[in-house]
Amino acid sequence: MRVFLVFCCVNVATGCLLGQAEKKNPVTGDATAIREGSSLFRANCSPCHGLDARGGGRGPDLTVGRWIHGGSDAAIFQTISQGVPGTEMPANPFEDSEIWALIAYLRSLAGAPQAPAGGDVTTGERLFFGKEKCATCHMVKGRGGHLGPDLSRVGAARSIAYLIESIREPSKELSLGYIDPNNHYGIPLDYDTVTVVTAEGKRLVGVAKDEDAFSIQLLAEDDELHLLLKKDLTEVRHERRSLMPAYSTEMLSAGELRDLIAYLSSLRGEGL
């Protein structure tokens, strides 16, 4: 039977501790617990956080030591067991020993190197809204375009390695888009380049905000919505690549990348 497992996101939004401050993980560093935690993680958490906990479509990277809802054992315990209200992180009916095993596993992964360091946030912001034209497609706190994902919280949700990959090789992993809440097994749409050709021969390129067998709701490169019936189209092609250009070192030097990453990492959703 198809299983879509309970997912456990661990650091999505603001949470609070309910008298758990004294709890300490009794099995930190214990090889057996880490192994059990790994197995529990794969079965329960990986659908959102990725098989290796480096972030999936819905859940953040858990290997970078950045715990938005508190990084103490007690805080992580709370996040796993109670979930985070207002986010996609649900409460999880694990036994205490299982939660400690999960935390032991997550601790065993933490501390991945965070290179490159030393960029300048202000310079990065200037690049984002200026020369590199990122804001043509991406929005930060209401400023920018509509075609790509909103990046107002990206620094809280993604590792630096992921951000670098998304800039240098944006097609390697397409970001996820619309999730239909009435389609329980549905796979979210992603930021895939879609090309359509109308019966009149007009070609439009963009991303699908939604689509079914009969229609497509396309946000095209002109930043406009095109609401189309497939019977009026001669072609609908999913290209399985991102619309975003791959920023080579010629387009974005190593130094500029550092500045841009410094800016993106600073975006934690404050004030939203």
Binding site: L5, E36, S39, R42, L51, E173, I187, R240
Partner: peptide, 27 residues
């Protein structure tokens, strides 16, 4: 499809890891 040993706990899921749509492929 990934596989990993999993200890049986009565009443808990017992799947032996996890599966999901192959990365990058449209279903």
């Amino acid at each position: 499809f990934s596989a990993a040993p999993q200890k049986y706990h009565e009443g808990h899921d017992f799947i032996g890891s996890v599966y999901g749509p192959a990365k990058g492929e449209k279903t």
